[in-house]
Computed example of a mutant assay.
Amino acid sequence: MGLDKKELIVQTATNLFRKKGYLGVGISEILTECNLSKGGFYHHFPNGKEELLITCLNSMNEVITQDIKEIFGRYQTTQAAIQAMLEELIIQFDRDETIIGYTFNSIVSEIGSVSERVREACEDSFTKIQEIYSAKLMADGYSKEEANSFALMMTATIEGGIMLCLTKKTSEPLQTIASLLPNTLKVVE
């Protein structure tokens, strides 16, 4: 069974936003790619392109957080889980020359030119990722304050690494992060 029209629009727009950025994609391009009329588009997204972007970000967030939860659930420690996650990201980048699902960066890089609602959707996504990291760190014995600080650092480091991989067209930044980041996490006894 195929995608329903709304899912098709979200999937198509997400791919276009990743490739061209939010400002680089017009409604007409989305309509053409989806073989859809303006009326059909506005039926699903009455508030237009911004509403579509927020839906795309929320959809990506669900996929990303589920992936991270699954990886972190398979490993005893944060150190092992972060190492495994980084290795999976490196393999995906080397294979696909992108990191599908994890690339908020190309969409979010234009955040200054979009609305507060979009900024809040992005913030929510990063907050959920940090909460997964923080929970695992607390399970490892870190205090809540330490766990939150390390979770922020991990999120910023990995997101920055992804952006550098996309910009440099090499997985080397994530490889470097994979060799260093897990070692910054102490084992709490």
Rank of each mutant, 00 (worst) to 15 (best):
E50D: 11
G73P: 10
M60K: 14
A147G: 02
M154C: 08
T127L: 15
D4K: 10
D4Q: 09
Q76S: 12
T12V: 09
I30Q: 03
E51C: 06
K5T: 15
T65Y: 01
D67L: 03
E62G: 13
Y22L: 08
Q11P: 02
K69I: 15
T55S: 13
N61E: 12
I27W: 07
V63A: 13
K169P: 04
Y75W: 15
K5S: 11
I162N: 04
C165R: 02
I82N: 00
E116G: 12
K168D: 05
D67F: 02
G73K: 04
I129N: 00
V63S: 12
G26S: 15
C165D: 04
L152W: 00
G73F: 08
Y42Q: 08
E51D: 06
E97L: 13
I30M: 08
F45I: 04
E70C: 11
M85R: 04
D67I: 01
E120I: 11
I177A: 05
L52P: 06
K19Q: 15
E110Y: 14
E88W: 02
Q175K: 15
T184I: 11
L166K: 09
G101S: 09
E120G: 15
Y75I: 05
I71M: 08
M163V: 02
Q92K: 11
R74I: 06
L23A: 15
L174W: 00
A84K: 00
E88F: 07
D96I: 08
Q130K: 14
A178W: 03
K20G: 09
I82C: 01
E146W: 02
Y22R: 14
K168L: 07
K144P: 05
R117F: 09
T170E: 06
E33F: 15
R18P: 02
L86S: 00
S115E: 13
L16P: 13
S115T: 15
A135K: 09
L31E: 13
H43K: 14
S149H: 02
K19C: 06
E33H: 13
L31Q: 10
T184R: 12
A81E: 01
F72P: 00
I64N: 03
T55W: 04
L180D: 04
F150W: 14
E51Y: 02
T127I: 10
T167M: 08
M60R: 09
N61I: 01
G48P: 01
K169C: 11
M153Q: 10
D96N: 10
S149C: 02
E116F: 15
S28I: 08
I107D: 01
N105A: 05
H44T: 01
V63R: 13
F72G: 00
I111R: 12
Q66M: 10
G73Y: 07
E29M: 05
S59Y: 12
A156G: 10
D124N: 14
L152H: 07
C165G: 02
I99D: 11
D67G: 12
T127M: 06
K38Q: 14
I54R: 05
H44I: 03
I177W: 00
K19L: 10
S115K: 13
F41V: 05
T77Y: 13
F17I: 04
Y142A: 02
M153K: 01
